[in-house]
């Protein structure tokens, strides 16, 4: 298969349409399994009690907020480097889902912080840099839609996405670089200090959110392709919805 076969919007439109439902199904199955393991099977935490179960969505959404931003910036870089239309569309399609996961990470962190730290919010390095990530997503979405010509919006927003990548290591290493209230990482590449069932629940939720993000991005990019290519012959030839 030609490496650039899928870089054509018309080809990718059909490809995304076939794949997206499967990613939503996978997300639902993994999510159901993750919720069962996290809320039923995983043991009660010895220190935090039941409220620790917030981490099954908090950690998974925080991981996704950073991962989606990184992928979005990669698409932005590809768009600027190769001047490829589809890369810019994919970056645009990912941004709202990334913003949603960032909001969920902040919200759930707040409802975990109140019973454990005694406060909903603190201007801690980890939490503040995650809030900056939410503003970067908002800035990206606003900038991408601020131009009459969408290609100009693509270029400006791609540049913002690439510059914003500097915030990702700040979020990740903030708990090591500064003295923060937020706890350090419990899961590392070298191992974990968590109970196996807790780790299983968290990973299942993370994979569920990952599959959901792919399904949502593929669905959204189809709408973006339709809007941008509506004057082309292949879109007019599509069966009316």
């Amino acid at each position: 298969m030609n490496l650039f076969y899928l870089s054509s919007p018309s080809t990718f439109f059909h490809f995304a349409g076939r794949l997206a439902p499967w990613f939503f199904v996978l997300a639902a199955v993994l999510g159901a399994a993750g919720l069962y393991v996290g809320l039923v099977q995983a043991p009660t935490d010895a220190v935090q009690g039941e409220v620790y179960r917030v981490i099954f969505i908090h950690v998974a959404s925080a991981w996704m907020s950073m991962f989606i931003y990184f992928v979005m910036a990669c698409y932005g870089a590809m768009s600027l480097t190769f001047n490829s239309r589809l890369s810019a569309m994919m970056a645009r399609a990912l941004a709202p889902t990334g913003a949603m996961f960032t909001f969920v990470a902040l919200w759930t962190g707040s409802f975990w912080g109140r019973p454990t730290w005694g406060t909903y919010w603190v201007w801690d390095a980890r939490i503040t840099s995650e809030l900056v990530l939410l503003f970067l997503y908002f800035g990206y979405i606003a900038l991408a839609n601020a131009f009459e010509d969408p290609r100009r919006g693509d270029r400006a927003s791609s540049l913002l996405a690439i510059v914003g990548v500097v915030n990702l290591p700040i979020i990740y290493f903030s708990v090591q670089w500064w003295n923060t209230l937020h706890q350090g990482s419990s899961v590392r590449l070298t191992g974990t200090s968590m109970h196996a069932m807790m780790l299983t629940g968290m990973l299942l939720m993370a994979f569920s959110f990952w599959m959901y993000a792919i399904g949502a991005a593929l669905t959204r990019v189809r709408s973006i392709i339709l809007e941008r290519e509506r004057r082309t012959r292949w879109v007019r030839a599509l069966r009316p919805a």
Partner: peptide, 25 residues
């Protein structure tokens, strides 16, 4: 809140799809 956020995004996805098809039509 997580369920509401995901449900809201799915609604926006459906609205975006309907808007795109409207423009095509």
């Amino acid at each position: 809140a997580t369920a509401v956020a995901i449900a809201a995004e799915l609604v926006f996805l459906a609205l975006g799809r309907a808007r795109a098809w409207k423009q095509v039509n």
